[in-house]
Amino acid sequence: MKGQEVVAARAAKQQQGPMHRAFDWLPTAANSKAPSPGPGNPHHSHRQSSNDSLFSAQATPEHCDLHCKVMLLGDSGVGKTCILTRFRDGQFLYGNYITTVGIDFRNKMVTVDDSHVKLQIWDTAGQERFRSVTHAYYRDAHALLLLYDVTNKQSYDNIRAWLGEIREYAQDDVVIMLLGNKCDCGAERVVRREDGQRLANEYKVPFMETSAKTGLNVELAFHAVARELKARTKKEYSDESKFNVQEYLGQHQSHRNSCLATNCLTT
């Protein structure tokens, strides 16, 4: 049965030929006559796994009501791994710059109201050379946290390109959140908060500034995602529980916004 699946997947890959990009990691690309498969090929391999769906109650040993895949995206060095380490372990990685090689997978349980939500967080490498490997995983993601660095204009300018890739490779209903990280670096800041907000409005995605160093808004970002995903699954039962990430962020972030300025005391 597995063999059939692979055959099917190959056929599907070939249909995707036109999506071939200059940067193709696929080994056969250089030699094979067949059109090169695009990076966003089907995720057939884990289709059969039961935890793939959004509803995977009690599928894993630890009881969880919901299983979500969250992906961290953004240029290299914007602080994706740091945000994740802050969220998962409550720590900040001082000093040493740890580069992610490919994709790192980590799990974290969060509690939304009474239910346990298991977040499987995919921390991606920001480097261009890993792009097509990460593309392959876009489609499986339920939520994407897209980061830029407020002290790095280039990383902000690249957000449009990132959103373009997301549109190309991710599911249409994927939850996207834009985060301006390193907002504790007051003096070095080159991207204003308003710039981030304007960009977010343009693409109609929720936006926040975060700091992995101080922990500002880090929990909030992940919790908001978990809430949104949970709300979506409920929607299918009733239209009552409408949840709006932007509103939620507004409510929970507002009191912290005032202390944003005081947080910027570095250098």
Partner: peptide, 26 residues
């Protein structure tokens, strides 16, 4: 790579002696 210690990673790697033109996934 310190990052391997804290997470499961999926990473492309080319082994030049094995096949210098293609990637393996690790």
């Amino acid at each position: 790579s310190e990052s391997f210690k804290t997470a499961e990673s999926w990473t492309p790697i080319c082994l030049p002696k094995f096949d210098s033109n293609g990637f393996m996934y690790s």
